[in-house]
Design a protein around this nucleic acid. Structure first.
Lengths: 348, 348
DNA sequence: CGGTGTCCATAGAACGGTCTAGTGTTACTT
DNA sequence: AAGTAACACTAGACCGTTCTATGGACACCG
């Protein structure tokens, strides 16, 4: 792909190296390294002189070189396996990334981000970790028996899993209690009087879909409700299709729960198609509350979840892992119900 | 900050190096390097054997090492100077980043992303470029006489500026013709019959705000319209405040143009506060069309702009620069007007 | 006065690649 | 058959750090 750095680039403003700094301060490169890292081994006065020289030359240590000798690279990795187009549409990831950055900023760290199409995620992480380009990574969208878990544990990548510990294997994890949230959602709708509650889930292979589906099945059965889950992929398209299918069934639901906000918004359109008014004929409940839910008419009730803080917490946990702390895993705040205009008792 | 990699990490799954591959294939490390890069110097059979050995060991060259010897690092940089919280709320950046990734994916490249708070952007780029961590960078949010331009040109960073060539100095740039778009917007509103058209702009120090403001002033004067620009910062808060100020003026506007979509959405709320109905009493026109504009009631007319493609084009241009191509600068598609329900002829 | 620490500072070997300047082999000229 | 060109391959320097030895200088101790 892209070529070697341009010639006209390298001869301009040749970068200062540790040697230049050492020469200017009249010491050896080793002394410079020691001074920079606040290690014992140079006198206060020499250190002063070295730092002075470094700042005069505008020198910052070359991280690639530092990484080669096994040092901190001030970078964490994130690989997302979704088509690029979708990333821009889904509020979740951007908020999550913002949350990550909010922690990184404080430590002057960067995020190495890669979107992939197929199943190359393990490769990418290997390359990043073994190539010393990241200090650790965040793993998202865990599937059941995710192959990443054994593979990345094997190479010793410091990582935090976003998802339930049951999915995380030996890795630390930060998760939301999706089962509890599903129970809360179902109880709420049942309390309003709904007896047939359906649900549109995310991809079945995702670990949290499974957890939610299991909890949903259990709680509805326990409460003696009619229930069904249709599977979609978080996109508006598949969300509306799934919603349509549910509404076409002979025993039409009076309430539907969605696994994200995009699909719930799409369902508003489907309800209109069917001539159903929301919430009188059909209640809709979204997940991953975002601005979207407040901008629609009617506004959407949602399981609210502070994704920004979630991202921050995950990143915080990752630094815990990197620093070798124990007991890093913990649940994040559970989604909580925000009733808005899209849920109400069923008609009659 | 974070520590050196953990011990229990490095002793697990020790990474294969070029030497291991060389040993297994029975050749020298140089031969491996040559084979990997498809350079002349090894026979077809040896090359085959080497690649075989490499794949058996799962070896990928260490990019930090490669970077040290002046090689491609498959990474481009992006620094954004906004508070982390805002990033998640504004659809623009996420779509822009998705567009960038859509091009990077095809070349197996990563994006190195950094959010900063103060004026440290030049530092970050220096570190990345001189440290061989990126092959080039994308510069966004250019200000008038932006200090980044001379500083980064000086160190020879390959970069593409997102913004008008007049802001880009020696750098290549990709830009939208904001002046033409402003003219289109004003002509449209004037054609509907509006005589007093106001505008809420982004921060005055941003280069494209200046360009839009100048064009706005020029075209309204030329057409003999009353016009005024209030300055905000793209946030919903400041957007509504600015909008309120404009509506409180004795000669109230019948139409307002906004510099992004968030502020336009916020203005819907302000109109409601004032008891003004949109579009009868007040027409609103947004910029940077996104899902938001279609989800509000009434839907918002907007200057539509394919931000995803824009990001892709910018990235494409950056690879052009990195590969030493000439004539990389070019305008991107101009925003075009999408009339929806928030614009109409003024009452009476 | 020799031995033993402590403190400063340095030399030099990694780290994992790339690349230049070779060294041997062949094969082809003449 | 000697000269040479083309090819296959390698030794070793180098990139910019960090880090482990190690060496001097000086003070303190017995």
């Amino acid at each position: 792909m892209c070529q070697v750095r341009q010639m006209d680039a390298t001869d301009k403003g040749r970068k200062a190296t540790i040697k230049d700094v050492a020469a200017r301060a009249g010491v050896s490169p080793s002394a410079v390294s020691i001074a920079l890292h606040d290690k014992p081994g140079v006198s206060a006065s020499t250190k002063e002189r070295i730092l002075q020289a470094a700042s005069e030359l505008g020198w910052r240590p070359n991280q690639a070189a530092a990484s080669l000798s096994g040092h901190n690279v001030h970078t964490v990795g994130l690989v997302i396996a979704r088509p690029a187009r979708m990333l821009g549409l889904e509020p979740f990831y951007m908020e999550f990334i913002s949350g990550i950055e909010s922690v990184l900023v404080r430590r002057s760290c960067s995020l190495l981000l890669r979107l992939i199409e197929a199943d190359e995620e393990i490769q990418v992480h290997r390359e990043w970790w073994q190539g010393g380009r990241v200090n650790g990574s965040i793993l998202v969208d865990l599937r059941v028996d995710d192959p990443r878990v054994p593979a990345l544990a094997e190479i010793g990548l410091p990582a935090v899993v976003v998802g339930h510990p049951s999915l995380a294997g030996p890795f630390a994890s930060v998760w939301t209690d999706d089962a509890a949230a599903i129970v809360e959602a179902v109880r709420y709708l049942a309390a309003l009087g709904h007896r047939r509650i359906d649900r549109v889930s995310g991809p079945a292979e995702l670990g949290h879909s499974v957890i939610r589906t299991d909890a949903f099945t259990a709680v509805t059965r326990e409460m003696g409700l009619e229930a069904r889950t249709a599977v979609a992929d978080f996109s508006a398209d598949q969300g509306s299709r799934a919603c349509r299918n549910l509404l076409l069934a002979p025993d039409r639901p009076t309430a539907i729960i969605f696994d994200n906000d995009i699909m719930a918004v799409a369902a508003l359109g489907v309800a209109a198609e069917f001539g159903l008014s929301v919430p009188e004929d059909l209640s809709l409940l979204a997940w991953d509350d975002s601005q979207l839910c407040q901008l629609t008419r009617p506004t959407l009730s949602a399981m609210q979840h502070d994704v920004f803080s979630f991202g921050a917490e995950v990143t915080h946990a990752l630094f815990g892992v990197i620093n070798g702390e124990e007991h890093v895993s913990h649940p994040a705040q559970s989604p909580s119900l925000v009733p808005r205009a899209s849920t109400a008792p069923p008609r009659r």
